[in-house]
């Protein structure tokens, strides 16, 4: 019961933050991670973004995105630990191979930045919906055409994925075996991609004609109303934009002083 109450209050808290504030949070935390000079500072930024992650009602996309980047973070630790040009102090030996402190610290600093970006982005992904984003972006001053382009991408991707699955199933049903050599794999590209791409452009043309017929370009247009209210949205935008500018200034100052 307490857990359910806590989850509900988390959902309410995240729902009262508007989408643009969430996007500005990604920008702010990314800049903060890039301003961090050492692992302690980077760790502090990481803790703040982790706090955002704990507020998430579900963490589905977070695991997928983290897994996607973990492999490269591990290879980064290995390569930089071995070959980073500033390597001097041996951290540990693995058989006859020496790993260096400087390279390991550098790789961990880079890895923490990646995790900061993933954690702050997952906060946006898991707590906003497409319809909420489209309404709020239009309310924030983006033209309805730009909003349409952005939102229709989100609807088209699953549709394209379904089309690809259909073509693959059709090939399997016809007994086409998965190719083994690189050349035979390359040869299967054209028969699948050409119909899929032509179909996509055909559907785009049909959608375009439908939009024109329905008067999408008409100057007299009913603006969608949003019934949601957000906590101090304008003030949050100004504050986060100002803090981000300060961080950009700090970074530029650091580069000039070097």
């Amino acid at each position: 019961m307490d857990a359910a109450k806590s989850a509900s209050s988390n959902a309410n808290w995240t729902a009262s933050v508007d989408p643009v504030t969430k996007l500005l949070l990604i920008l702010f935390f990314t800049l903060a991670a890039f301003c961090a000079q050492n692992l302690v500072e980077a760790g502090i930024v990481l803790v703040f973004t982790l706090a955002l992650v704990f507020a998430l009602p579900t963490k589905k996309s977070l695991w997928a995105m983290t897994a996607f980047s973990l492999f490269i973070i591990v290879t980064m630790v290995v390569i930089q630990g071995l070959f980073w040009p500033s390597n001097q102090t041996v951290a540990f030996h693995l058989g006859t191979i020496d790993f260096y402190q400087e390279g390991l610290k550098h790789a961990l600093l880079l890895g923490s930045r990646i995790l900061v970006i993933i954690f702050s982005t997952s906060f946006f992904i898991e707590t906003t919906t497409l319809s909420e984003n489209s309404r709020y972006l239009e309310k924030s001053g983006l033209s309805f055409k730009q909003v349409y382009v952005l939102m229709s991408v989100c609807y088209i991707l699953p549709q394209m994925h379904r089309n690809l699955q259909k073509i693959r199933f059709a090939q399997k049903a016809r007994g086409i075996q998965p190719a083994k050599s690189l050349w035979s794999k390359a040869k299967t590209l054209m028969p699948v991609l050409v119909p899929l791409i032509v179909k996509s452009f055909q559907e785009a043309m049909n959608r375009s004609i439908s939009l024109q017929l329905r008067g999408f370009d008409s100057p007299v247009r009913r603006v969608p109303k949003s019934d949601r209210t957000y906590w101090q949205d304008r003030a949050c935008h100004r504050l986060l934009a100002a803090l981000s500018l300060v961080l950009v200034g700090v970074k530029i100052w650091e580069i000039i002083c070097k």
Binding site: S143, K145, Q146, Y148, V149, S152, V153, I156, L157, Q159, M160, H161, N163, L164, L193, L196, I197, S200, F201, E203, A204, M205, R207, S208, I209, L211, Q212, F216, D217
Partner: peptide, 18 residues
């Protein structure tokens, strides 16, 4: 940003993805 380009751009993004 005509109706044609408004529908072409999402299709192009979808093709990139596929």
């Amino acid at each position: 940003l005509t109706a044609a380009t408004m529908t072409l751009i999402p299709a192009a993004v979808g093709i990139n993805y596929v």
